[in-house]
Design a protein around this nucleic acid. Structure first.
Length: 315
RNA sequence: CGCGGGGUGGAGCAGUCCGGUAGCUCGUUGGGCUCAUAACCCAAAGGUCGGAGGUUCAAAUCCUCCCCCCGCAA
C-alpha cells in the first residue's frame, strides 16, 4: 500500500514511524511545514517530522501552503498514493487534495471525536479534568475534524499527567490504531460512521493569557491548569513582582482540605513535598517551579532559594 | 547579529554597583533531646567563587575573550 504522509510536530512522529515500519506499507512521500525560526536566537529549525523522515530516508517536501501550491497536487500525481494520512499537519487541505487518493485521506486526532475538535484537544481534556480521553481515526472531509469515523480508542488519563506526557501516550496509541485501522479500511472491513455533530465540542488553541493561574479557583482546577500548560507555555503566577512558572503540582487529596486555608494564593505551608498554596477551595502543593532566567527547581529548592515564608502570596 | 537573566561548598540562593582574608536555607556526618520522628538542640566536614588572560599591594567583585544553562519572543 502506498501512503502519502502529512504531519509536523512530535505528535505525528510515532504514526510516521509505525507506517514506515509496516512491511506492507510504503511511505511514498512526507509533506511537512517549512522550517521555522525557533528557540533562542530564532534559528531556522526543521519540524520533528522532517527530521524523522530524513533519518528514515523518506522523501520530504515542505509547503508553506498546500492550497496555494500546484506542486502539492503534482506530487500526488507523481507518487500515486493509495491513501493519504494526516497527523497534526497544521494546514487545512483543499478537497481536491485530500480526495485525490483512491482511498481518500485519513486523520489521527487526539480525542474521542466528536469531542474536542480543533487544535488543542489534549489541553482541553486536561483543563476539564477528564479521566478518560482517547484517539480517533477518521476520514478527512472539508470541515474541521468533522469527518466520518473509522475507529476510536479510549485512553485513561493519569491524574498527574501533563499535556506533554498525555500527548505522548496518545501519539503512541494513535499510531498503533492507525496502522490496524488503515489495513482493515483498505480491505473493506470498515464502514466509516458519521459523527454525531450535535454532540461536538471544540478545543481551540489557547492564548498565553489562559495560562495565568487564578487562585480563587479550586485546587483541582489550578492543578489541571498547571499540567495542561506543561510543557507549553507553562502556567504562571506573580510572585514578588516576577512571573513564576508553575510546572508541577500534586493532585489534591483529601488531606489537603484538612489544612486551615488562607486567602487564595497565600503560602500556607512548606515541607519536603513542596510549597502549599491556598486556593479558592482547598490547598495545592506546588512541586516544580521556575523563576525567570532560572532553572526549574523543586518546591523545596525554590523555598530555600528565595527564603520563602508562610504568609507570602502568589498572585 | 531578536531582547534579557544566570553560572559561588552536594542542592537552591545572597554577596558583584561603592575591590580587602566567602555567607544563608536545605542536605550530609557526629553528638544530644524524645516513647518516637522527616520535628527540635549542639557540633563538624565540605568551596582554586564556570574557564583563560589582564588591571591592582589586593579580584567572587573591575576589563577582555571563551564555554555552559535559562526566561521572553517566534
Amino acid at each position: 500500500m502506498r501512503v502519502l504522509f502529512l504531519g509536523t510536530p512530535a505528535f505525528a512522529v510515532p504514526s510516521l514511524e509505525a507506517l514506515a515500519a509496516d512491511p506492507e506499507i510504503e511511505v511514498v512521500a512526507v509533506i511537512t511545514q517549512p522550517d521555522r525560526p525557533a528557540g533562542r536566537g530564532r534559528r531556522l529549525t526543521p519540524p520533528p517530522v522532517k527530521e524523522t523522515a530524513q533519518r528514515m530516508g523518506l522523501p520530504v517536501r515542505q509547503f508553506e501552503s498546500i492550497r496555494a501550491n500546484p506542486e502539492a497536487l503534482e506530487l500526488i500525481r507523481s507518487t500515486a498514493p493509495d491513501v493519504g494520512v494526516v497527523v497534526a499537519f497544521g494546514q487545512i487541505l483543499p478537497k481536491e487534495f485530500f480526495a485525490a487518493p483512491p482511498w481518500g485521506t485519513l486523520n489521527v486526532h487526539a480525542s474521542l471525536l466528536p469531542a474536542y475538535r480543533g487544535a488543542a484537544p489534549v489541553v482541553h481534556a486536561l483543563l476539564n479534568g477528564d479521566s478518560i480521553t482517547g484517539v480517533t481515526i477518521m476520514r478527512i472531509d472539508e470541515g474541521m475534524d468533522t469527518g466520518d469515523i473509522l475507529a476510536r480508542r479510549e485512553v485513561p488519563v493519569p491524574p498527574d499527567a501533563t499535556a506533554g506526557e498525555l500527548e505522548e501516550l496518545l501519539a503512541r496509541e494513535g499510531a498503533r490504531l492507525l496502522v490496524v485501522t488503515l489495513r482493515r479500511y483498505v480491505s473493506g472491513e470498515l464502514q466509516p460512521v458519521p459523527q454525531d455533530h450535535a454532540g461536538a465540542t471544540y478545543a481551540p488553541r489557547l492564548p498565553k493569557e489562559a495560562a495565568r493561574v487564578d487562585w480563587s479557583l479550586g485546587a483541582w482546577a489550578v492543578h489541571n491548569l498547571i499540567r495542561a500548560m506543561n510543557p507549553r507555555p507553562g502556567a504562571f503566577a506573580c510572585f514578588r513582582e516576577q512571573e513564576v512558572k508553575l510546572w508541577r503540582s500534586v493532585p489534591p487529596g483529601a488531606e489537603q482540605r484538612a489544612i486551615s486555608s488562607g486567602r487564595p494564593g497565600e503560602v500556607v505551608g512548606i515541607n519536603r513535598e513542596g510549597v502549599m498554596v491556598a486556593c479558592g477551595d482547598g490547598v495545592l502543593t506546588l512541586t516544580e517551579l521556575q523563576l525567570p532566567g532560572r532553572k526549574r527547581v523543586s518546591g523545596v529548592e525554590f523555598a530555600n532559594g528565595v527564603r520563602l515564608e508562610t504568609g507570602e502570596r502568589f498572585a
